[in-house]
Design a binder for these strands. Structure first.
Lengths: 324, 324
DNA sequence: TTGTATGCGTTATCAT
DNA sequence: ATGATAACGCATACAA
């Protein structure tokens, strides 16, 4: 800035102004400064800027997995909006582990982010303490609580499980097989589905659980295991569309008719869901909307603008297609 | 640090040493400093550290799409290794556009990253100029050139297309349908496949192109369009496993036998490929290896360690499964 | 509209 | 082994 200023015949401060608040600089000097910037190839140093202004223009975003479309889709929309407000995103993976989340958060806070996006509402005590100490806005997404750390935007996994159970029963299914990934939120959906389905039909669902993530492979294996465990017909409730897709494939491989012999319902409404054979019934959560709204809420909080509510339930929708 | 030092009975400088180079501090004072840090809840400020040391411990990573598993998988492994070396990753999406890449790079350079990961080898002149000006290590991945900006790790898309064509012909297919996404690398594979297939069989492939990304939906529609264009039997060469999966589904929907009536081969060897019906033939690129190696190369370059070669071809492998 | 002085929280250099 | 001092490149308060 010093150099640019010298060439433009102004002080370093005026260059700073020209960059951050051009209205405060006369048109003539602004032009000279821009020419000087062009000439020198000056690149602003946000590190120094952040130190001086105490605003890093950085958002830390912690997601369980970046390869899972559910979350990367959410992040894509989040980043899109947040970039528009001049922020960069420091993204990290927590692998569904609170310890990992705490470890990652700890190093991220050294970057002095202006705001934080967390996935889920369950965090370690150490996490909460650090967040409190940092004193910056926090948005928790993809779950719902009345007592967020700061702001929460998402939906109730318990309700989702229940509604799927009610839907399944309304379709006339009297038996159910659950194939679920092992993360805490998937298990909460599973449990509320099982409880509700049992209550309505008197039949407790058969369960096949996988410790780690959902894949088509596990959907196929899950159906196989379920059948070995005695599941004959009814609905297969999957914690993810990928598992459900695997179920459809395995059913076809076994010559089972869908939905006559077995039905399947997934979760997530991934973009392939309408195009499987048969088309996959699922639960839709508007990830585009969620990502954008989370970004807007975070920016609002950073700017001390008031939010109407600290907990925003964006809900979900059961999409009935041919697989049920 | 000032506060921590006062409590520990040392100067601010000694606290800095205790954190960055503990060996230089006596065991006794180190202990007192650690206690003081614990007591105060001190969190280091990497913004200030970066300004003073001129090392941001930040890596900028530009990928075409974060929702595409091909790239997010690559990034996952990259980040994993790079984190182990004490770096944070600033990731951004470029959407397969050189203009977008330049715009993103321009704002990223303000963060003074210590290194940069780029996807692909084709960049705008402005991009190259900025990179040159920044004077930091650059690793280009997912493609191959003898003249990288700095370091290049990947494979040849032209070779990949050619090898797929040779493989297809070796299987006995005499006609081909190409379904491809519109990004530059996919088109390069498509073109070399088409040229090679034509040369070997005398039959130019039918082509269906989509401007944007690959989805199962487009795979289904692509086969439909291809059939309308006159494709009857032979092999369907897809620029992505997702497209190929869509082809399998559409074939099944039409009662076409795979691979007897039509065969299909994808690209990427995504984790579902072995579990489709029939299992999908595809081209595998070891993304885990690529991500890790890119991270290691970048760290080595940052530390001025020599690399044996500036262009590393990790190759690819045609995985023959039941769909061909 | 522009400039001067000061400080942001570290690391690096040099001295002790 | 430890400390004093000077950058690092910018933004802010205040003055002109």
């Amino acid at each position: 800035m010093e150099t640019v200023g010298r060439i433009a015949g102004v002080s370093q401060v005026t260059v700073s102004r020209a960059l951050n608040d051009p209205k405060k600089v006369s048109a003539a000097t602004l032009k000279r400064i821009q020419d000087a910037i062009e000439l020198t190839g000056y690149v602003p140093n946000m590190v120094a800027g952040a130190l001086a202004s105490r605003r890093s223009q950085l958002i830390a975003a912690l997601v369980p997995s970046i390869t899972n479309v559910i979350y990367s889709d959410l992040m894509q929309n989040f980043i899109d909006v947040i970039r528009g407000s001049g922020y960069h995103v420091l993204m990290a993976e927590t692998g569904f582990s609170q310890d990992e989340e705490q470890a990652v958060l700890s190093t991220m806070l050294s970057r002095r982010p202006d705001g934080i996006l967390l996935t889920g509402i369950h965090h370690s005590p150490g996490c909460k303490r650090m967040l409190l100490g940092a004193g910056i806005p926090v948005v928790e997404v993809w779950d719902m609580t009345e007592n967020p750390l700061d702001v929460c935007i998402g939906f109730s996994h318990i309700k989702a499980g229940e509604e799927v159970a009610k839907y399944a029963v309304s379709c006339g299914y009297e038996h159910a097989l659950i194939i679920s990934a092992g993360d805490e939120r998937a298990l909460r959906r599973k449990n509320s589905f099982a409880a509700q389905f049992d209550q309505l039909t008197g039949n407790a669902p058969t369960e096949v659980l996988y410790e780690t993530g959902a894949t088509i492979e596990r959907g196929r294996n899950g159906l196989t295991t379920g059948i070995e465990l005695g599941f004959k017909n009814g609905i297969v409730m999957c914690s993810s569309d990928l598992l459900a897709h695997g179920v459809l494939i395995e059913a076809q491989s076994r010559g089972l008719r869908v939905p006559e012999d077995i039905a399947a319902i997934g979760f997530g409404n991934q973009n392939f869901a309408p195009f499987t054979l048969p088309a996959l019934s699922t639960v839709e959560v508007n990830r585009t909307h969620l990502g954008k709204q989370a970004a807007e809420a975070l920016v609002a909080r950073i700017n001390n603008q008031p939010l109407s509510k600290n907990s925003i339930d964006i809900g979900f929708e059961i999409i009935a297609r041919a697989s049920t």
